[in-house]
C-alpha cells in the first residue's frame, strides 16, 4: 500500500487562478464545493510532523479530512509560490528547507 499523504489545501481565488493558468498548471486544481478550486500539496507523515512543530497554530484534522490546516495565510502564499515556481505540488521539502533556514 502506498504511503498515506496528508494534504495542505491551498484554496484558489481569482488572483491565484490567473497565476496557475499563466504557468499552464490548471490541471493541478481539483474542484470541491460548487466549483471552488483547491490545490492539495501532499506532505508525508514526517513532513507533517515537522510542519506542526514549526507552526504552533497549525492543526492536523485526524478525524475528518486528514489534512493539515490553520497555517498562516502568508505561509500558504509561500507554498503556493513554490508550486508555481516548480510547476509541481511536491514542494514541501523545499518549503521546509526555506523555513528552517
Amino acid at each position: 500500500m502506498a504511503e498515506e499523504k496528508f494534504p495542505i489545501n491551498i484554496w484558489i481565488n481569482e488572483e491565484r487562478l490567473a497565476k496557475i493558468q499563466a504557468a499552464g498548471l490548471a490541471d493541478m486544481c481539483k474542484e470541491v464545493l460548487a466549483g471552488l478550486k483547491v490545490i492539495a500539496v501532499p506532505a508525508t507523515a514526517e513532513q507533517r510532523d515537522k510542519i506542526l512543530k514549526i507552526f504552533p497554530t497549525a492543526k492536523f484534522d485526524a478525524a475528518t479530512t486528514r489534512s493539515i490546516e490553520n497555517l498562516p495565510r502568508q505561509i500558504k502564499d509561500q507554498i503556493f509560490d513554490l508550486v508555481i515556481e516548480n510547476k509541481s505540488v511536491d514542494v514541501v521539502d523545499e518549503f521546509l528547507k526555506s523555513v528552517e533556514k
Binding site: I10, N13, R16, A34, L36, R73, K76
Partner: peptide
C-alpha cells in the same frame, strides 16, 4: 474543517 480552511485563506467561495 474545510470551511474554516477556506476562511483562513480569505478565498471567497462560490
Amino acid at each position: 474543517t474545510l470551511i474554516r480552511s477556506i476562511i483562513q485563506d480569505g478565498v471567497k467561495p462560490p
